[in-house]
Amino acid sequence: MNTFYKKNGPLISTYFIIAIVFWLVFLIIIPQLYMLDLSFRPNLPPLLRGGPDDVHTLVHYKHFIFGSETSQDNYNYVDIGVFFNTIITAIFVTIINLCFCYPIAFYMAKVANPKSARLLIVSLIIPFWINELLRSFALRILFAGEGVINNVLIGSGLIDSAINFIALDIALYTGLTYAYILLMIFPLYNAIESLDTNQLEAAKDLGSSTLRTHWRIVIPHAKAGIASGCTMVFMLTAGALATPVVLSSPNTYWFTQLIYQWFNMNDNWSRGSAYSILLLSVSVVFVLLMMRLFKVKIGEIIR
């Protein structure tokens, strides 16, 4: 603390500390605690809040599991299904994202000369100046029944009739993968960048195949970057709203859509909070799992 003050001077240090405390307390801790509390309270009209009925209860969590606040006879297959579908799809999207981004990141960090690497980075970033909603609609146009992709495939004679990419959720998976690509590429790129190129050559000189060099040298070196990219992509994918709204098929729901409905359309903030807390818990579990799997510490992930 003392050295922090000395390094930055009293004015800037005080500003930093106030800004960070404000950010943590007012923007993260208090709202989340409020939501947590709200999720354990019944959904009451404003007049009854704070009254005798405003007690802690598990009804919203019960509703998630049983589909009813009172009976436990049936399971809420719809909501549970959406929940697990969201989590599993998000995991798959994360894996696909990793497989897709790793070669690009490796190419940028170790193969391309600095000039073309910079060009590649710029051309990856520029599309993300366009807002997420617009990007999703653009993909919808590409994947539509009469869209560019179908027209090209039919025109080239590869298929006879249009593929319904939207109904098959191919559009959704593509959109979700594409949406957070940068958050995967940059941690990977930074991690691989810092690997001494001589180690790659040394491995090659010792007879290692390209695949094994990646498996034994590059991936172990980059594991903090991999874990960091995967956790960010997973969390944002599981929590995405715009892309699923625009690209999912009519009978696929994303868990965030349910949350949105409870908050906005049904005006049931308590249930919305309960559902948010569920999603948050799974995301945290996922991060802890990634850290265990890759044997990295939280500090390394953030780096």
Binding site: A202, K204, R216
Partner: peptide, 28 residues
Amino acid sequence: PNKRPTSLIFQNLALFPLMSVSENIVFS
């Protein structure tokens, strides 16, 4: 380089830091 009967020791050695000494030695 992996097919030549040569072995190179790099200016900065380029040992593999995440492997043990033995693993380094018998990596080939």
